[in-house]
Amino acid sequence: MSRQLDEKINALCKNPPAKYDDLKVLFLNCTLNRTPVLSHTEGLIHVAQRIFEANGVQTKIIRPVDYVIPAGLGHDMSETPEWDRDDWPQIQKEIDDCDILILCTSVWLGEKSSVCNRTLERMYGYTHDFNSKGQYRDYGKVGATLITGNEDGVKHCAMNILFSLSHIGYTVPPQADAGWMGEAGPGPSYRDEGSGGPENDFTNRNTTFLVWNCLHLARMLKDNGGIPAYGNMPDEWSAGCKAGFDSPEHKR
Score class of each variant (00 low, 15 high):
M1K: 11
M1W: 04
Q4F: 01
Q4D: 05
D6W: 02
P16A: 03
K19F: 05
K24E: 09
V25T: 12
F27A: 04
R34T: 13
G43V: 10
H46A: 13
H46P: 02
V47A: 03
V47Y: 04
A48F: 05
E53P: 08
N55V: 06
G56I: 09
V57L: 00
Q58I: 10
T59H: 04
K60V: 00
V65W: 03
V65C: 12
D66R: 04
Y67K: 11
A71E: 14
G74S: 06
H75F: 12
P81E: 14
W83R: 12
I91Q: 11
E94K: 01
I100T: 03
L101A: 09
I102L: 08
T105H: 07
S106I: 06
L109E: 03
E111L: 12
K112V: 05
K112Y: 11
S113T: 14
V115L: 03
E121D: 14
M123A: 09
F130I: 13
N131I: 12
G140A: 11
V142S: 00
L146W: 06
G149Q: 10
N150S: 11
K155R: 11
C157E: 07
C157Q: 06
F163L: 14
S166C: 09
A176T: 04
G187S: 03
P188I: 03
D192H: 10
E193D: 13
N204H: 08
L215S: 00
H216W: 09
R219I: 00
R219V: 00
L221S: 07
L221W: 04
D223W: 00
D223A: 13
D235V: 08
C241D: 11
A243L: 15
F245T: 05
